[in-house]
Amino acid sequence: MAGAPPGHTIPSYAASHAGSPSRHMSQYPSTTVTTTTTSSSALVSGTPAPTSTLSSTLRYPSTRKTIYDRNLNRSRNAELSRSSFAYLFMEMVSYAHRRVKGIQDFEKRLNEQGYPLGLKLLDLLLYRAGPGASSTSLTSSSSTSSSGGGAAHRPLRLLPLLTLLTTKLYPLLFSRPADSLEQSTTNPAEYMIIDNTPLTNQYISVPKEMNQLSVAAYIAGIIEGVCDGAGFECKASAHNTGTDVWPNRTVFLIRFEDHVLEREKELERQGVK
């Protein structure tokens, strides 16, 4: 194999994941481990440590259509039909429905399925926002860098993180920013992202007996994954707040952990932006 081993091809992966909270790593052992090792959707893979890479038994096509040979930005502006997402998500919800007990369990499962996307998308967002984003050579300069050779810095303060969610994550996923970002007036640890037309809810009406359920819990899981990956441990949940004009209007409630707020205060005192 002439190609560089996986651990060396993608910049800053190890760094950001080493920085991922252990709480969530242990709380979501199955999903996190699964997606990183399966790399089933590994936009940003690279989990294998160098030692395991050396003993890799994986076979690669001679056409070299592998994740290591293809440009990470290749699919940046690619589009698929919205139906393809709708049907996939429909079956995901339907499958979950058969295996859960109650609304809470249902939302937890959808959240957990979105969470690994958030972890990966954080890296992808930072990578694309950085100065090396247009570079096709991923192996230059960044192979040993743990602070993100070609990638942008991850946010350190709450506001930049939340802005990243509404103005970078949202456009990446849904081709538009979120509709608004609000801070709770009663709890300084709580923020709300408001989406009038969440993609997950577009074709899904929940039955009356489950009217507390929001299938946008999947998006909440993505948000939670991004925040956790960036070191802002939180819980994110989705809540139906439909109006006549916006029947699917959804509020994503993000509640940060106490220590995140303490750090925020300390950083503010030190003048870190």
Partner: peptide
């Protein structure tokens, strides 16, 4: 006639579906 969606969202969503099955 086709409403579009970002391709990476679909790719990642399928990935998480397969990953879930592998776990289950």
């Amino acid at each position: 006639r086709v409403d579009k969606v970002n391709a990476e969202l679909v790719t990642l969503t399928y990935g998480t579906v397969v990953a879930q099955l592998c776990t289950d």
